[in-house]
Amino acid sequence: MFTGIITDIGTLVAKTPFGDGARLLIDCQYDAAGIEIGASIACAGVCLTVTALEDGGNRTRFAADVSGETMEKTTVGSWEIGDAINLERPLKAGDELGGHIVSGHVDGVAEIVARDDHEEMTVFRFAPPKELVSLIAEKGSVALDGTSLTVIEADDTFTVMTIPHTMGATTWGNRKVGDVVNIEVDTIARYVARLVAVRGADA
């Protein structure tokens, strides 16, 4: 599990075919000694498994394999060499839960349809997949490219606000209208929707 609090910005340094998907090699600042093969790292919100490690002194490179389905349903398929990627290590027992519970199981992609920059904040508006609209609520949480954010307004589109720290500590500073990002709706919203659907079917 993750919290949506980004702890590093990685760089994609290699992407090679692997089965029906790809093998990624990502450069980061994490200490290689603190990462085990098989560990999970959220990459732009996508939970990936570390399959190999390279210790480059003050930099670390880790490999992760992604399936064709993951490449189709997330932004991973469009990643290019040199792209910056939000990274987060998994939550440990006793860690502070600074964002919200994020599983790393992306629900789809959302398009940025507006960006309004103000002195103390930036407001982004997104167009999510239609099937997710009912799961996004005002004042609720949503994970976008792995970042835990609070929904301001929600109808067919929704808005979030980012502060200068978030813009500088993540990839959000470079995001523009037309970009697509990974979206994971709040886990509670997903289960409530499922419960309502099942009860409705039994009625």
Rank of each mutant, 00 (worst) to 15 (best):
R61W: 07
P129Y: 04
G19N: 07
F158W: 04
C43M: 03
V181K: 02
L195E: 10
E153C: 10
G99D: 05
T147M: 08
V102N: 08
T150V: 08
M71S: 07
A114H: 13
G98A: 12
T187S: 14
T60E: 01
E111D: 07
L25K: 02
T159Y: 05
S40N: 10
S78A: 15
L25F: 07
A127L: 07
D8P: 15
H165Q: 12
E80L: 15
I35W: 02
T150M: 05
K92Q: 15
I183H: 01
T75D: 01
L87D: 00
F158K: 00
I101S: 11
D116I: 12
I188Q: 07
D155A: 15
G56L: 12
E80N: 10
M71F: 05
D65H: 05
T159K: 06
H165F: 14
P128S: 07
V133K: 03
E69R: 08
E72I: 10
K92C: 10
N58T: 14
D83P: 01
A14E: 07
M161D: 11
R125N: 05
T147V: 15
I101K: 14
W172M: 06
D95E: 11
D116T: 12
V142I: 14
A52L: 07
D116G: 04
V196H: 10
I37F: 05
I152P: 02
T171L: 02
T60S: 10
W79E: 07
E120Y: 06
G34C: 10
G99P: 06
V102K: 08
E120L: 14
P17I: 04
N86C: 04
V102L: 06
R115G: 09
D8S: 09
E96F: 13
A127C: 06
K139Y: 04
G140A: 08
G168N: 12
A32V: 05
I163L: 15
I163G: 04
A22P: 00
K73F: 10
K139V: 09
E119G: 10
S67K: 11
D145L: 01
F124Y: 14
V198W: 09
G168I: 05
K176D: 14
C47D: 04
P129H: 03
V113H: 13
E119R: 15
E36M: 11
D117N: 13
D202K: 11
I41P: 02
E119H: 07
L87V: 15
G21D: 11
Y30T: 00
F18N: 09
A114F: 04
S141I: 04
D65Y: 08
M121A: 14
R199T: 05
A64K: 00
E138P: 01
L25P: 00
A154Y: 00
T60R: 03
L91N: 08
I101E: 05
I136D: 00
I136G: 00
E36R: 06
R194S: 05
V177P: 03
T166Q: 04
T187M: 12
W79I: 02
F124L: 03
S78Q: 12
R23H: 12
D83R: 13
I81G: 06
